[in-house]
Amino acid sequence: MSSPGGTAGTAAAARSAGTAALAIAVSSFAVWQPWPVMGDTFLNLRWGGWPQGAVLFAPGVHTAEAGWLEDFPPTLARRLGRVAAAGVAALMMLMLYLVLARGKDQALAMGADVPTMAFALLDGVIAVSGTLWFLSWLRCRWPTHGVMLGKAARASYATYVIHPLVLTAVMVAFALVALAPGIKFVLVAAAGVAACFTAGYALTRVPGISKVL
């Protein structure tokens, strides 16, 4: 993605966003043929959601390193917000149509057909436009942060990588605690978030590992 700046930069940013959305749509449509979104997969890996995650992750790393979001055009951000809202509305209408036409159980049955293509396209549009709008909105309202939030931001990628292991450990630790399920859920969620970010930040302080995470 090129760095936005002025009218040309805004146009370039819009093209980059469109390219990312199209990449998600095409790759998702291809992956959904053998692995539908709600289908059963080995170890519940949900392959159908991987194209979106991969496409969002790769440009995300690049834009963060290049500072692409530092001067993201506010006008484009607002437009992307409207696009995301329209995409959500269109997706809801598509889902309603599929439920009425196929029934609730078969609404998300993916195939090489027009509804699946439309679903994949809307998925890409919402993912890219919604993400960019939300990031821009956050940066406009909280342009600065304190030391604690800065450390959490630095640890965010490491936290993402290790959170399944940490959360599993927290859940095992709470397994024998005699509490109501609702209360235990709240406690595990709070402790899990804190533990994940603490462990993630600790890893970023380890020489060698810090260059990767």
Rank of each mutant, 00 (worst) to 15 (best):
T63W: 03
L91H: 05
V37K: 09
H163L: 01
G150Y: 00
R46F: 02
V186Y: 10
F42R: 13
A20H: 05
A101M: 10
S3T: 14
P115T: 01
D40G: 02
G5W: 09
G53H: 05
L135I: 14
T159K: 05
P181D: 11
V193T: 13
L91T: 07
V83G: 01
L76K: 09
T116M: 05
C140M: 15
L56E: 00
G60S: 03
G53S: 05
G103V: 06
A66M: 11
P4T: 00
P181V: 12
D40L: 07
I126M: 06
L149A: 06
R205F: 07
R78N: 09
W142C: 07
V61T: 03
P34I: 08
H145I: 05
V125F: 02
A180H: 10
L135H: 08
R154G: 09
S16W: 13
R154E: 12
T75E: 05
N44T: 13
A86G: 14
S3F: 11
G130W: 09
G39I: 12
L108A: 13
G87K: 12
A153L: 15
R15Q: 06
W32Y: 06
R82K: 14
G67C: 02
K151A: 11
G208K: 08
C140K: 15
T10Y: 08
A109I: 04
G81L: 12
V128N: 04
R205L: 13
Y157R: 04
G39T: 06
D123R: 02
K151S: 02
I126G: 00
G18L: 00
L121A: 13
G5C: 11
A158P: 03
L121W: 02
P164K: 06
G39W: 12
S28G: 10
M117N: 08
S136E: 09
V55T: 05
G111A: 11
A21K: 08
V125P: 02
M110T: 13
P51D: 01
V177N: 07
T41Y: 14
L96K: 04
L167H: 10
N44D: 12
L76T: 08
A58W: 00
D105Q: 15
A118C: 04
S27Q: 01
T144D: 15
P51W: 07
M117G: 13
E70Q: 08
A101P: 03
Y201F: 15
D105S: 12
G146I: 02
T10S: 14
R78E: 14
A86Y: 14
P51I: 04
A77S: 11
A107Y: 06
V166P: 01
T116Q: 07
V188G: 11
L122D: 02
G200M: 01
S2G: 13
F29L: 11
R46M: 12
K104V: 11
M1R: 10
G130S: 09
H145E: 14
A58S: 06
A127K: 03
M38N: 15
A14P: 02
V166S: 02
A118Q: 03
T116P: 03
A13Q: 02
F197N: 01
V206T: 13
G111I: 05
L96H: 05
R154D: 10
A173E: 10
Y201L: 00
L121D: 02
F174A: 10
T75R: 14
E70A: 09
